[in-house]
Design a protein around this nucleic acid. Structure first.
Lengths: 190, 190
DNA sequence: CACTATACGGAACGCACGCCCCGCTTTGTC
DNA sequence: GACAAAGCGGGGCGTGCGTTCCGTATAGTG
């Protein structure tokens, strides 16, 4: 293993790299991960070959985009832990993730729903961090008596993915069905 | 509009039609709706052209298969309404649908999750009937005080689709997260 | 300003899949 | 058993998409 020697990019190369990342962010968000690379190239105003020089495969591009998104999301979640009422933070975070992030970003939904996608390994934030955050939020909620004790972080993630699927099926009902699911996480007698 | 004049099939044609339907049932179940038609043809032991003679498009084949499946499912649900404890029938039906039917049949899950798929029009049972059944089960549960009053049949369907997505993401957690969702449908104070 | 390494664009390739076509086979009938 | 109609198989076409290739353009350097 040698040290990371990121050799300096030529000016146009660096510029195009940013154009591609920006276009990929927008395109994955609006069209989902299934979008053809040509469409991203078109929106970025570059050729398909240029994308492949910077990101050897489509997955690499996707990881770069989603990884940085996930970093923002985790940051939001961590901040919520330190607001008043940390026992409600889990529910606020899940609503934010499903109704705000998920509704505006099909690519993110696709990424969460795809099983066995090691999207963390190349992104700024590993998927593992997301699970740790969920665990922290969950524990805070459980300590406050707002969430059932037997629920695990992985179950919370699974429930969130289910809520995103519900939203994808019927966006108009997203809010109400999400509340049903969140209610199911609360203790029976609260 | 003329009356339905299903002209008698030749013996080999009728036999192949059944082979195709059987192979399609198995293949859609194990591989999902995305499976190539060639795979179904291979399993049925016929050529691709033979499938297209009986079912003009892949969608037609899918509708024939899923439509009959849906008929079985609706029959199961109707039966549950007449068992003792009709107020619990909704929950029993949803568990059956998610943990039994959904777990064994990826094609069915795909069919439910695909928005705007008019799978009822050509099958024995219209999707509409499924919603009506859900409505009947839901009303029985609400009358018994087992389900929240503000929930609608379409919300129940949406929640079911979400549960199937959860199962697809993590089959090991399917049972526990489904219970969380079902709990969310129950009144707060029960 | 010349020169080279670097990067660019988009045509082209390989592959997968839905669907069609057509020469050959099988079925049912007289 | 002969003959027409019905059916069959699977090769082939069109399309879409990920990826590669290579001739051309451009940034950086002395």
């Amino acid at each position: 293993m040698s040290i990371e020697t990121t050799k300096p990019l030529r000016a146009d190369a660096a510029r195009n790299r940013q154009l591609v990342l920006k276009a990929a962010l927008d395109t994955f968000a609006s069209e989902g991960l299934g979008v053809p690379l040509d469409e991203i190239a078109r929106r970025a105003g570059v050729g398909a070959g240029t994308i492949y020089r910077h990101f050897p495969t489509k997955d690499d591009l996707f990881r770069a985009v989603i990884g940085s998104l996930l970093a923002d999301i985790v940051a939001d979640g961590r901040a919520m832990l330190h607001e008043p009422e940390p026992g409600e933070a889990l529910f606020r975070f899940l609503r934010l993730l499903i109704l705000h992030w998920g509704a505006d970003n099909q690519g993110l939904v696709d990424a969460f729903a795809t099983v066995g996608l090691d999207w963390g390994s190349a992104g700024p934030v590993a998927e593992e961090e997301f699970l740790v955050l969920l665990g922290d939020l969950l524990r805070a909620a459980q300590d406050a008596g707002n969430a059932r004790a037997e629920i695990t972080p992985l179950e919370v993630k699974t429930l969130m993915i289910g809520c995103q699927a519900m939203q994808g099926y019927n966006a108009a009902l997203a809010e109400s069905v999400t509340e049903v699911v969140l209610n199911g996480m609360r203790p029976r007698s609260a």
